[in-house]
Design a protein around this nucleic acid. Structure first.
Lengths: 334, 334
DNA sequence: CCCTCCCGTGTAATCGATTACATGAGGGTA
DNA sequence: TACCCTCATGTAATCGATTACACGGGAGGG
């Protein structure tokens, strides 16, 4: 593969001049520039980003560590991050942590070895020593979606509290009283926040939220199904089940269908986290939609701010309720 | 950030020895090795992969260019590629081509600049000069999912012909005669193959496949919806619509619902490409499922074979029919 | 005519690792 | 004792770019 030196020889100039052409430096004469361009095409020259990065100490690359790319929420997030980064001239390397601290650490390590310019992390529950150290070292980190307590790292996240309040109001209007929640681990900021907001809203609206109606799992489909089974097995099952994310909601749906129950007549269903196919379900699923694309875009902007020495604060975005039919005769909005 | 030289000084050895420890060379004494390890942890040393790659001319990185990460098919593919590559000690950089040749070329260029060891591409319809040149130069390429005619590049793909034949048989058994297809662009190998297989199977089973029942779009939701509208507007609309991928099927579903038609009574629906939520639709969607995880894993193996100088042939995997209820009283398999 | 300044270009150090080759200590053998 | 071999380690070149600094020539001013 042709190197800058080959181009230089062919164009009859020095490597410095070729480099200047590569970097669009103004101090190269028109004529020389053309000679260099010609030599480059003739040789099929492709600059070596590895060598450039070594010298410049910048890779123009961002690392993104997410929980699970199969989860549409993360897929959309990855897409938004990638789009925004690309427009700013950055490449994104995605790491799939599979919601495991160990995998997350693997990627943190690898990406730091690769000298990414910044690291966007959807952290797992645990604060691992490696992440702690990276933060302490001053590596440019930003947390997305989830927050780790007691760490001085800027974060970009969604606050669903208001939307959950709205949802509970909606449920009350529809005549429901016994409401249940199946959510993620309380150690995850998102799991805790959604639970707290639901409990608070239920209290405010005078709903009947018994202790056994609050179940926490791991944001995965199987746990959604298992917890739903537990709820439906209660002597007095809830009238509504609220899934803490789209996968737990899908698990709930599986269990409800397996028992031949009707939605919303036998049990109503709502979801935190909207996905493109919820409107097409039978019945369409009422959901709380997060501004995922915005989340990703803002996260990139925060990290770029940090990289360019601009002040970088945290960002909190609101979620919105999208009422459909899975909780009863709501407005028919898709 | 600490460099190998700092570690060497602190451990009282030369950089060569530190490097040997890093690369687990056996010719370092136990005692020295320990001193080096200690120095590394004390300095929080993280090896610089950029420098290493420059010297070794290998990045242990693979590039993957896909059509659209929001499409569950590609998300699953990305996941499989990443998993398999990771197990072999490789990192994967994903590029989102958004089904546009221009974006695809951007990533081909960028990833070659970054000197990825191999490139996995789901090519867009056009054979761009850049891709052609990369293939000619002997860059390690592998095509996934789609094939470009007349290029000497190994490919890993799914052949749905048999499954489509099975589907048409299934439709016939259920009493359908007028069958229609909404598929992707014929210039895409997948679009053409699915269309050809459908036409052939329909003929073999004596189905009524009128020319106007064959529509081709762009594998996106909007085009699925528009083509479905066109089919339903025909004086004699088809009894069955077969979507060429999951997005076109979803578009079809939108249009069918918008018109208040029932599935399968008014019009039956089937899909090439199964996704996790099809079983949860109302009614559950009959689909042809591709071995996506296998597809990704095999593609990685093919490229690694090439990298290691082993012979690397193309791979064709079979798809399978998963009958559900959207075409009528089929077996109830989820 | 000479001095300065600027413009375009070249020389060479540098980034942080890997690795071929050199070196020196120690042990075994004749 | 002399020789050779092995083992552990060090020296220095190298990968392909960037860039500070040097330099030569031409223009412009006095």
């Amino acid at each position: 593969m042709a190197r800058i030196k080959d181009v230089a020889v062919r164009a009859g100039v020095s490597v410095a001049t070729v480099s200047r052409v590569l970097n669009a430096s103004p101090s190269v004469s028109e004529e020389t520039r053309n000679r260099v361009y010609t030599a480059m095409t003739e040789l099929n020259y492709v600059p070596n980003a590895v060598a450039r990065s070594l010298r410049t100490e910048a890779t123009r690359t961002l690392g993104l560590i997410i929980g699970d790319i199969l989860n549409p929420f993360f897929a959309e997030l990855a897409r938004a991050v990638e789009d925004t980064a690309r427009k700013a001239g950055y490449t994104v390397v995605i790491g799939n942590a599979d919601e495991r601290a160990e995998e997350q650490d693997h990627y943190v390590r690898t990406l730091i070895e690769q000298r990414v310019d910044g690291l966007l992390i959807c952290p797992t529950a645990e604060v691992t020593p490696l992440v702690e150290q990276a933060a302490a070292t001053g590596d440019p980190l930003v947390f997305i979606d989830r927050v780790l307590p007691g760490m001085d790292v800027p974060s970009v996240r969604v606050d669903g509290t208001d939307a959950i309040g709205e949802l509970v109001g909606h449920l009350k209007t529809l005549g429901h009283r016994r409401v249940a929640l199946i959510s993620g681990p309380l150690r995850l900021s998102t799991g805790r926040e959604r639970t707290d907001a639901f409990v608070k809203a239920a209290a405010e609206h005078g709903m009947e939220l018994r202790p056994e109606y609050i179940q926490s799992g791991d944001f995965q489909l199987a746990s959604g199904r298992a917890l739903t089974a537990r709820l439906l097995d209660l002597p007095e099952p809830p009238e509504v089940i609220f899934g803490g994310d789209n996968l737990m909601t899908l698990g709930a749906l599986d269990e409800i269908r397996a028992r031949g129950l009707r939605i919303p007549e036998d049990v109503a269903l709502a979801s935190f986290d909207d996905v493109p196919w919820f409107p097409h379900m039978n019945p369409p699923i009422t959901a709380i939609s997060q501004p995922v694309a915005e989340l990703g875009a803002r996260a990139v902007r925060v990290i770029l701010d940090r990289l360019h020495g601009r002040p970088a604060g945290s960002v909190v975005l609101p979620a919105v309720l999208v009422p459909r039919q899975s909780c009863g005769e709501g407005r028919n909005v898709s």
